[in-house]
Structure formats: C-alpha cells, structure tokens
Simulated scan of single mutants.
Amino acid sequence: MDFNFSDEQEQLRDAVRKWVDRSYTFERRQGIAKAGGFDRSAYNELAELGLTGLYVPEDHGGMGMGPVEAMVVLEELGRGIVLEPLGATLVASGVIAAYAPEALKSQWLPKIASGEALVVLAYQERKARYRLDVCEATATQAGSGWKLSGEKSLVPAGDQADAFLVPAKANGKIALFLVERNAQGVSTRGYPTMDEARAAEVKFQDAAATLVTADGLAALQHAVDVGIACTCAEGVGVIDRTMELTAEYMNTRKQFGVTLATFQALRHRMADMKMQQELARSMSYYASLKLNAPVEERLRAMARAKYQLGVAMRFVGQNSVQLHGGIGVTDEYVGSHYFKKLTALELVYGDTLHHLGEVSQRMQDTAGVFA
C-alpha cells in the first residue's frame, strides 16, 4: 500500500499551512476566542481556499475530493488550533451529498461550498451518552412538510449556523431532517467551549423541517464516522505542534545550568510521547482510508482509531504540561491552548472509554488479530 501523498495533496497541505501561518496567528485566534469563538470572516477565508467544498461534488460547485484530502487539510488546521468548525461542514456536506434528494442537494450544496451557508449536525441529547439510537426529538408530517420538536446539545457554532441536520423520530423510526436556524420555533443559546470554540444548545418547537432521508440512523452513523475521521486528523495536527513546542522548550529552558533536554529521564518521556504521536498518525490514516469501507468494517475502524487517538491526545497533552511546568497551563502561553484542544477532542464523537466499549463489542472470533 502506498502511503505517499500525491503532488496535489501536498500542494493542498502547503496552501492551508501558509494560510494558518500568515493569516491565523495566535493573536488573531485569541481575539476570536474573546469575541465568542467563531469568526465568520475567518470561515469565509476557508471557503475562499475551497475547503468548505472539499466533500461537495464538482457539479454542485465543490472540489469533489475525498477523505485523504480532508485529512491533510484538518491536520494543518489542527496545527493552528483553528476555531472555525470546518470538520462540521465536511460532515454536513458529506451527508447531504450521499443521502439527500436531488432538490435538497441543489439548494444547499452550492451554498455550503461557497461558504454562504454553514450547516452543522445537531444530534447530541442529554440522555444519549454517545448512543446514536437514543433520540427523544420527534417529527410529524404537516401537509407536504414536517414539524420537528426537541432539544440538541453541544451543536458546533449552533447560534451562528444557517441550518442544522437533525435526527428525530418519525413514525417510530429515526429519520434525518434539515432545519433552518431562522425558521419559526428554533431558538439557540450559544456559549464558549473548553477549547475556546463555540457551541450552542438548540431547541426546536414545531419548527419547519425538510426530510433528508428516512433511514436516519444509517445516515447519522455515517455522519459521526466522518466526524471521527476529521477529529482524528485534527488531533494529529494538534499533537504535532504540541510536540514541537515541547521540544523547543526543552532545548531552551535551563535548570542547574544545562538545558532540560540533557536529562535522560525527560528524553525518555519525550520518546514515549513520540511513540504516541506516531500511533495517532497511523490510526488517523487508517480511519481516513476506511471511511468508504463497508459499514461494519467502517464502524470497527472508527472505534479503533478514536480510541487510540483518545489515548494519544491525553498522553501527549498531559505530559507536555508536565514537561513545561507551571507555564504549561498559563493562558498567555500558546501551549496551554493546545492542551485544552487535545482535552476537548478526546471527548468529541465519543470519549475513549465509549470507543473502547465499541471495539470490544465489535470484536470477532479472531479478536481482530487475523481479520
């Protein structure tokens, strides 16, 4: 298997890295965080680079690219701990492109690709505990349309989004709907998250909804798997930059007249972190390459990848703080913000213990060794 990236993929990586280095500085990010955690102008800059249209087919104005290109992009955005939720955009555009009727695709995909519309998945409920089959939101048919009621939590940039993809029970079965934020009966309460991004609680009260697919559970599972692959890639980027910052600190900070990097015990700690970094990278590749695999194979792969990324993100983040000492948790130091991002990513789309349970549940007779 060839793990080398194509010239086009490397050019894409280079373009995103240059934008992060030049346009999304730590100072700009701090300003966005203090203003609420989402900046529409920064999101539009991602759209100008074509990134919001990565998963949108070319005939709908997008780039028509795949999981590997998305992985390359999100690694670079992770390095810059970019707050704007491009991963959520890829989830929404991928689901609409794969499951929505043609009229809905024509209406929303070009707007998503151009950055005119931000559409995000609103699926988490307070009682669900990461289970996708637990859904209290309901939808009832009203003439030729639908009315949807329910509450969703931790919706990325929920009070800034233009529309939501919402799972709800219709006729006793989970279906997936699209609801516009400005529709009557939709209310949002936004707040900053631990990693300084933005999320919202969203309430629907007989809100007008458009059916995306009646097979909502399959579409929702696919959406979450896309989200897991995006989160893994972003986590690798955050880990990479965390490692660079830690190595730089150890090569400059002196104790007892010598740099920290000369102490063997600390070098061993960095070696352990490097092992976790490379395990995370390989499992992120695995997740992206399995994203279009048959359903059961895909589900096993995503659970394995998210478990390993959770372990790696926690290990690298916590050890980086320990190696830095007190400065590692100060708001003025950039490294503390990488630690917060790693801590938050470990919880997104299912935490480490949840996915360990998923790995265990999906083991076959061979325990995954020969299959």
Rank of each mutant, 00 (worst) to 15 (best):
M1V: 13
D2E: 14
N4Y: 11
N4C: 10
Q9D: 12
Q11H: 13
R13K: 15
V20L: 03
T25F: 11
A33I: 05
A35M: 07
E45T: 11
L51Y: 05
G62K: 02
G64C: 10
G66A: 12
M71N: 07
V72D: 02
E75H: 12
P85Y: 08
A88N: 03
L90W: 10
A97G: 08
A97H: 09
P101D: 05
K105L: 10
S114N: 06
V120H: 00
Y123N: 04
A128Q: 05
D133R: 11
E136V: 09
E136M: 09
A137I: 04
S144D: 08
E151I: 14
K152D: 00
N182C: 04
N182Y: 08
Y191D: 00
R198E: 00
Q205F: 04
D206F: 02
A207F: 05
A208G: 05
T210G: 02
A218K: 10
Q221P: 01
D225E: 12
G237W: 01
G237D: 04
M250W: 07
Q255G: 12
V258Y: 08
T262Y: 11
T262S: 14
Q264W: 12
M273I: 11
N292A: 13
R298M: 08
G310R: 01
V311C: 09
R314H: 15
R314M: 06
G317Q: 06
Q322C: 03
G326I: 14
E332V: 14
V334S: 07
K340P: 00
K340R: 15
V348R: 08
L356Q: 11
L356W: 07
R362P: 01
